[in-house]
């Protein structure tokens, strides 16, 4: 996957702050959210949930612009974005 230009910690949109919540019990580890996040906010982790799936890790939360693509793409309703 191509790396995005700029500082990975830099925030693209200043007005809102988004909180990403991953419900680990619902996640089946399909990694669609990791592969399709336009700003590579999520990444793979070594953490296993109760059912033995590898859950994604939020590695660059500051970059999230709240586009909600992961929220709608997730087949298990395991990930949600809240504006605070």
């Amino acid at each position: 996957m191509a790396k995005l230009p700029g500082d990975p910690g830099k925030k693209l949109k200043a007005e809102d702050s988004q909180v990403i919540r991953i419900d680990e019990d619902y996640c089946k580890g399909c990694s669609i959210c990791i592969d399709f996040c336009p700003l590579e906010v999520l990444s793979e982790s070594d953490q296993i949930n109760r059912k033995g799936y590898y859950v994604p890790k939020i590695s660059r939360e500051q970059r999230c612009i709240g586009c909600r693509f992961c929220e709608l793409l997730c087949p298990e309703f395991a990930i949600t974005i809240k504006n605070e």
């Binding site: 089946k28 580890g29 929220e71 997730c74 087949p75 298990e76 309703f77």
Partner: peptide, 18 residues
């Protein structure tokens, strides 16, 4: 009924969300 009984990566869950 959640989590769904769909396979890992199945598109049916996305359709339900949409």
């Amino acid at each position: 009924t959640l989590p769904t009984t769909f396979c890992v990566g199945c598109g049916c869950g996305t359709v339900l969300g949409a």
